[in-house]
């Protein structure tokens, strides 16, 4: 707990981060930037878990353990996503989402 900073302040930060991530995911055209947006979303949730644990339910450790696993899984997710983006670059010679439009409707 930090003196002078309430739980609401943290929630504002994490909510802002989450929706920045969603906005970035929807508007960006570059695949790597979209990956960064996904990282923002997952890290916002990780912040959420730690703060809820620390401020609201300090007797258990569920939230903190959960956030560690979110970070680990996010790392695995990004590793696979980068590998797929590289594969996409090899076949399409581009990392723009607009190239991925072979299959539609």
């Amino acid at each position: 707990m930090i003196q002078g900073i309430g739980v609401t302040d943290f929630f504002i930060i994490s909510t802002l981060m989450f929706f920045m991530g969603v906005y970035g995911f929807i508007t960006r055209k570059n695949l790597i930037t979209i990956l960064i947006a996904i990282e923002l979303i997952l890290n916002a949730v990780a912040i959420n878990f730690v703060i809820i644990n620390k401020y609201l339910y300090p007797e258990g450790l569920h939230g903190q353990i959960f956030s560690i696993f979110i970070i680990a899984v996010a790392a695995a997710e990004v590793a696979i996503a980068i590998a797929i983006v590289i594969d996409f670059y090899r076949t399409h010679k581009s990392v723009s989402v607009e190239e991925g439009e072979m299959m539609k409707y």
Binding site: V45, I52, T91, M102
Partner: peptide, 29 residues
């Protein structure tokens, strides 16, 4: 080309839906 595109669509959409799902879990928590 098709295979790469399919994997790309799957991993990105799976990642964002799991992010939204996690936000829901944090609300429940």
């Amino acid at each position: 080309k098709r295979s790469a595109e399919a994997a790309l669509k799957y991993i990105f959409l799976a990642a964002i839906t799991s992010g939204i799902s996690l936000l829901g879990i944090s609300f429940l928590y």
